[in-house]
Lab assay of single mutants.
Amino acid sequence: SLEEAIRRAEEALRKGQTFEYAGIRVTTQEALEKFRKWAEKQK
């Protein structure tokens, strides 16, 4: 689910890792916010 993907992205960010979902790379807090906004639109 998208909620699960967001949780995994947050977890990866805390560990300093890269999270990738549907071709979207989350490597920074800013990218995480963009990913969250994108995920909201997918619902």
Rank of each mutant, 00 (worst) to 15 (best):
S1N: 13
S1T: 13
S1I: 13
S1P: 12
S1F: 14
S1R: 14
S1E: 14
L2K: 02
L2G: 02
L2E: 02
E3H: 09
E3S: 11
E3D: 15
E3G: 08
E3Q: 11
E3K: 09
E3N: 10
E4T: 09
E4Y: 07
E4W: 12
E4N: 10
E4D: 14
E4K: 07
E4G: 08
E4M: 11
E4P: 03
A5I: 15
A5T: 08
A5Q: 10
A5P: 02
A5V: 14
A5E: 06
I6N: 01
I6G: 02
I6K: 01
R7K: 13
R7G: 07
R7W: 10
R7N: 08
R7M: 12
R8C: 13
R8K: 12
R8N: 12
R8Y: 09
R8A: 14
R8G: 08
A9G: 04
A9T: 01
A9I: 05
A9N: 01
A9Y: 02
A9M: 07
A9D: 00
E10P: 01
E10R: 05
E10M: 08
E10A: 08
E10T: 10
E10N: 05
E10G: 05
E10L: 06
E11Q: 08
E11T: 06
E11Y: 03
E11D: 11
E11P: 00
E11M: 07
E11S: 07
E11C: 10
E11L: 06
E11H: 06
E11V: 07
A12V: 04
A12I: 04
A12G: 03
A12Q: 06
A12S: 08
A12E: 04
A12F: 07
L13P: 00
L13K: 00
L13E: 01
L13I: 15
L13Q: 02
L13S: 01
R14M: 12
R14E: 11
R14C: 10
K15V: 11
K15N: 15
K15R: 13
K15P: 01
K15G: 08
G16H: 05
G16W: 03
G16L: 04
G16Y: 03
G16P: 00
G16D: 04
G16E: 04
Q17P: 02
Q17K: 10
Q17A: 09
Q17I: 12
Q17L: 15
Q17V: 11
Q17W: 10
Q17E: 15
Q17H: 11
Q17G: 11
T18P: 14
T18S: 13
T18I: 15
T18C: 14
F19D: 01
F19T: 01
F19G: 01
F19S: 01
F19W: 05
E20F: 08
E20Y: 09
E20D: 06
E20V: 11
E20K: 04
E20W: 08
E20L: 06
E20R: 04
Y21R: 01
Y21V: 04
Y21Q: 03
A22S: 08
A22I: 06
A22F: 10
A22D: 09
A22G: 11
A22H: 13
A22W: 07
G23K: 03
G23T: 04
G23P: 01
G23H: 05
G23Q: 04
G23W: 05
G23A: 04
G23N: 06
G23S: 05
I24V: 06
R25W: 12
R25H: 12
R25D: 05
R25P: 06
R25E: 10
R25Q: 13
R25L: 15
R25A: 10
V26P: 00
V26Y: 08
V26N: 01
V26E: 01
V26W: 05
V26A: 02
V26L: 09
T27G: 12
T27D: 15
T27P: 05
T27A: 14
T27W: 07
T27N: 14
T27C: 10
T28W: 04
T28F: 03
T28D: 14
T28A: 04
T28G: 05
T28N: 13
T28M: 04
Q29Y: 15
Q29M: 14
Q29T: 10
Q29N: 08
Q29V: 13
E30Y: 07
E30P: 04
E30I: 07
E30R: 09
E30Q: 10
E30M: 08
E30L: 10
E30V: 08
A31M: 12
A31D: 15
A31H: 14
A31N: 09
A31P: 00
A31G: 14
L32H: 01
L32P: 00
L32T: 00
L32K: 00
L32R: 00
E33L: 09
E33W: 05
E33H: 06
E33N: 09
E33G: 05
E33Q: 10
E33M: 09
E33Y: 06
E33R: 08
K34G: 09
K34N: 12
K34H: 12
K34D: 11
K34M: 14
F35M: 04
F35G: 00
F35P: 00
F35E: 00
F35Q: 00
F35L: 09
R36P: 00
R36L: 13
R36V: 12
R36T: 06
R36M: 11
R36E: 03
R36K: 15
K37I: 14
K37Q: 14
K37S: 11
K37V: 12
K37F: 09
K37Y: 11
W38M: 03
W38I: 02
W38K: 01
W38L: 04
W38G: 00
W38C: 06
W38N: 01
A39K: 03
A39S: 04
A39R: 03
A39N: 02
E40V: 06
E40F: 07
E40Y: 08
E40T: 06
K41N: 14
K41W: 13
K41L: 14
K41M: 15
Q42S: 07
Q42K: 10
Q42T: 07
Q42V: 13
K43G: 12
K43I: 15
K43N: 13
K43A: 13
K43T: 13
K43V: 14
K43L: 15
K43E: 11
